[in-house]
């Protein structure tokens, strides 16, 4: 059994992530799909902390952590160096970070990496906040969410801003392969990782990874919450190649759910269900409706069909 487990995990158990951690599911699937011939640059964050607590490491692949905001630059440096030394052979570079390390503090380095076209697969584990430091708001925290820096109160319904549109920022840089994925769709996620690994040039995958304590959910509901985010159209699952949407995860009409089904089990949205919260919930429903129309998310046609 020991041998068997070695074969299936490139991110080993024994890490100290929370029970039910969505990011651990995501990262494990990414490595599973990517395989052992990779070098990983990891940003500071939960994933780094709970997988590499000295003297242990969960990683079976070569892996480096430098700083919070520079995983993309470190990855770019590795790619350039391997090519310059003639060692860029049968190896791929992965940069990975949370949403804060990606969309906020890491933005400058990512922009540079994309603009220069480094062949790096960048994975953003989007749990919609700075969970490692105790659930503060990030640029990818959704509207209305309670975090410790966007607490609801007499003058606030929680987070006042919308999720920054990272996939479109990637597209605007000319990143040839951009995708969103969810831990509720593991096969789709792994397919996208494999595809990204084949891309000539940069690729970006943003994976929705629920955070048990940050979202205030039961540990068993991690994957279910990611699924509900998709089925309420709050997190569209897309594949964008050379600037064109080539695939969309379709929701069958009878599976489409109102956003309340997604919001209700999460403590971070509990304040929206108090008196007066209906308007906020409607604003969130509007986001979902807009996504539905924009990406044609609901259809009887099977999953993952071509959108146009």
């Amino acid at each position: 059994m020991e041998k068997e487990r070695k074969l299936i995990n490139l991110m080993e158990p024994g890490h100290t992530g929370c029970a039910g951690c969505g990011q651990a599911i995501g990262a494990r699937l990414v490595l599973k799909a990517a395989g052992p011939r990779v070098i990983v640059a990891n940003a500071t964050g939960c994933l780094e902390v709970y997988t590499t607590r000295y003297p242990h490491s969960s990683w079976e692949v070569p892996w480096i952590h430098s700083l919070f905001e520079n995983a993309s630059a470190v990855a770019a440096g590795m790619e350039v160096a391997l090519k310059a030394m003639g060692r860029y052979d049968n190896v791929k570079i992965i940069a990975q970070a949370g949403d804060g390390g990606t969309a906020d503090i890491g933005m400058g380095c990512i922009s540079g990496m994309w603009e220069r076209g480094h062949e790096v697969m960048y994975v953003c584990y989007d749990n919609e906040g700075y969970m490692n430091t105790g659930y503060q708001r990030s640029g990818l925290t959704p509207l209305g969410a309670r975090t410790t820096t966007s607490p609801p109160g007499a003058f606030s319904w929680g987070n006042l801003t919308h999720k920054k549109n990272m996939p479109m920022i990637a597209v605007a840089h000319g990143v040839p392969y951009v995708a969103t994925a969810s831990v509720s769709e593991p096969r789709d996620l792994m397919r996208k990782v494999k595809k990204a690994m084949e891309v000539c040039g940069p690729s970006y995958i943003q994976i929705l990874v629920p955070c048990v304590p940050g979202w205030g959910i039961e540990s068993k509901l991690s994957i279910h919450m990611a699924r509900l985010a998709v089925e309420t159209c709050l997190f569209p699952i897309l594949e964008i190649e050379n600037g064109k949407i080539t695939r969309v995860k379709r929701i069958k009409p009878d599976e489409l759910k109102p956003v309340t089904e997604y919001l209700k089990p999460q403590k971070r949205f509990a304040h929206l269900f108090r008196e007066g919260g209906e308007e906020e919930i409607k604003r969130i429903q509007d986001i979902a409706d807009r996504n539905l129309r924009e990406f044609n998310l609901v259809s009887d046609v099977d999953d993952l069909s071509s959108s146009q």
């Binding site: 070695k6 080993e12 158990p13 590499t52 490491s57 990683w59 692949v61």
Partner: peptide
Amino acid sequence: VKPGSSLE
């Protein structure tokens, strides 16, 4: 740090 050592 040894790879996969979190198994310990």
